[in-house]
Design a protein around this nucleic acid. Sequence first.
DNA 1: TGACTTAGTGTCGCTCACACACGAAAAGGG
DNA 2: CCCTTTTCGTGTGTGAGCGACACTAAGTCA
Lengths: 233, 233
Amino acid sequence: MSGKKGFTYEYARPALTVDCVVFGFGGGELEVLLIERGLDPYVGWWALPGGFVRVGEDLGEAAGRELSEEAGIDAGYLEQLGAFGAPGRDPREHVVSVAYWALVRPGDYRLAAATDAVAARWHGVGELPRLAFDHGAIVGVAVERLRARVRHQPVGFNLLPEKFTLTELQTLYEAILGEGLDKRNFRKRVLALDLLTALPEERREGAHRPAQLFRFDPDKYARLERRGFHFEL
Amino acid sequence: MSGKKGFTYEYARPALTVDCVVFGFGGGELEVLLIERGLDPYVGWWALPGGFVRVGEDLGEAAGRELSEEAGIDAGYLEQLGAFGAPGRDPREHVVSVAYWALVRPGDYRLAAATDAVAARWHGVGELPRLAFDHGAIVGVAVERLRARVRHQPVGFNLLPEKFTLTELQTLYEAILGEGLDKRNFRKRVLALDLLTALPEERREGAHRPAQLFRFDPDKYARLERRGFHFEL
DNA sequence: TGACTTAGTGTCGCTCACACACGAAAAGGG
DNA sequence: CCCTTTTCGTGTGTGAGCGACACTAAGTCA
């Protein structure tokens, strides 16, 4: 293999990587962050940002590091999705990957490809290209997880700018769930949760009535979360 | 390290293991299968069955293999729980473990410790000893997952013998959820799901009215599962 | 000032979740 | 044989919440 020192173990070991499924929301559609690979295998293919785990490094930290290195994104909150370890998923050798997922506000970052990525871009989940390795399957699992999660925890707010209108929020939910929602019922329920604070501002754009702006209130959420809680859309 | 050949890699790699949280139901309590370790580290401590993943082996298969080797159990269905990879979780070196969980009918197996386990035994989840590594935390995550799952999918039947009474089923649910349930509502809902078949037998035991026996019907379940579905306890 | 566009609001019917108590059947003992 | 004990098995009423549904409000632009 390599002529240099190397690391020797008594038994063979699979390699260990992390991959990140980063969701964003733009143009009324749910998007995933992909990088274009600059190295073999799968040069030129789109793939999830990720890379090898270093010895002594926590898995979550490795995911955060790779995300920052390859795409210039600092996701505050990464949650583990699971381990993917089918023997043939990497053509080189047996590579086990621990996948993470995160939600970010696309506007907060300027994507910057680096390391072994030649490009980093948002792709609508509905129109993904063929992905390298088993990354297509990983994205599928992540989308499922997001859909399940969004119904029971107020995660959606992490995808919107700090100030948003209820219509924007509803559009987001519809994009994630892939189904239309009733406007009045949606507003009723969201406001009943008492997680939003109405701002003294409105969004005026276009030839129509301006919309009230809201802000997600983490304090209220923390308080509710403490005494059990239920969301249900 | 070892004087023999060994396997050399350009970069250092964490070791990769699998661990299994196997749930059973006995004596009115939810139980977990533990083995007593016969090797360093943590000799003599109780731990989850598990071991190193071989190169070229699927993660789920590795979990099944270790479970069968160390405890003599063939769990039909193993589901992944997640990867645990904090750097200090194994005192020897950086070891990342992918945890799986399963439900079995304790009566179906005669526990047989082997390989590096000197004993295999069921332990009530309420009275677990101190566990090796971070296995205590892993069990905690598994219990949470089981609780969440049991409310939305009819997993409970995998823990009971083929024929069971509704009271037994209710006792199981109460043990898993850790709370009492109303008898009439429980029976109403369970029967309304139309997943059980009443058998032409009764269980006569003790000085009281005999109880109707039921069987879980996988066909009915498959049919329901196909057209969406909801359980909610 | 009229046309257009999106924002914002309330009611009603129905279903479903939950609380709740007693007769039925069998066994065992006096 | 009868009385006691124990668990099995069953129905109703009420209140809360979900879902369906249509019109007015406010602003812009021509």
